[in-house]
Measured scan of single mutants.
Amino acid sequence: SKWSPSQVVDWMKGLDDCLQQYIKNFEREKISGDQLLRITHQELEDLGVSRIGHQELILEAVD
Rank of each mutant, 00 (worst) to 15 (best):
Q20W: 11
L37Y: 08
Q7G: 06
I39H: 04
K30W: 05
G33N: 00
Q21F: 05
G33H: 04
Q42V: 08
L15H: 02
S1T: 09
M12W: 05
L15Y: 04
V49L: 04
I58M: 10
E43A: 10
H54L: 00
S32C: 14
W3T: 00
D46K: 15
H54P: 01
I23M: 07
D16G: 06
E27P: 03
N25R: 10
I39E: 04
F26E: 02
D34S: 13
H41I: 09
R51C: 15
D63F: 08
L19Q: 04
L15W: 08
G33V: 06
K2A: 08
Y22G: 03
R38Y: 06
S50W: 11
Q21Y: 06
I31V: 13
V62K: 07
N25L: 12
Q55I: 08
L57E: 06
R38W: 05
V9I: 13
V49S: 02
H41N: 12
T40C: 06
D16T: 04
H54I: 00
Q20M: 10
Q21G: 13
S1Q: 01
D10V: 07
D10Q: 12
W3V: 04
R51S: 15
Q35R: 15
G14I: 00
M12G: 03
L59Y: 04
Q55D: 00
K2F: 14
H54A: 03
G14R: 08
K30M: 11
L44D: 04
S6V: 12
W11C: 02
I23T: 12
K13H: 11
Q20L: 11
L57N: 05
N25G: 10
E60T: 13
Q7K: 09
Q20T: 09
G14K: 08
Y22L: 01
L19Y: 02
S4A: 01
Q20C: 07
Q55Y: 00
I31A: 01
V9N: 05
I58K: 03
K13M: 11
D17P: 13
D46Y: 09
S6Y: 10
D17K: 09
P5M: 07
Q7N: 07
L15E: 07
L57V: 06
L57Y: 05
D10W: 06
I52E: 13
I23L: 10
I39F: 08
S1M: 12
D16L: 03
L57G: 04
G48T: 01
E27R: 10
L47N: 02
L19K: 05
Q55P: 04
E45C: 14
D63V: 09
H54K: 01
H54C: 01
R38P: 03
L59C: 05
I23R: 09
K30I: 05
I39S: 05
G33A: 03
I39P: 05
R28C: 09
E56Q: 14
I58L: 12
H41S: 14
T40G: 11
R28K: 13
Q21V: 12
Q7T: 05
E60W: 04
N25H: 13
D17W: 05
N25W: 06
E45T: 13
G14V: 01
W11A: 00
L44Y: 01
L59A: 04
S32K: 08
D17I: 06
G48L: 00
D46H: 14
V8C: 03
Q35S: 08
D63E: 14
C18I: 06
L19I: 11
T40S: 11
I58N: 01
Y22D: 05
E56P: 03
Q42R: 14
Q20Y: 09
G14Q: 09
E60L: 07
P5N: 14
L36C: 00
G14W: 00
H54D: 11
D34W: 10
K30G: 13
D16I: 04
K13W: 07
K30V: 05
G53L: 12
I31D: 00
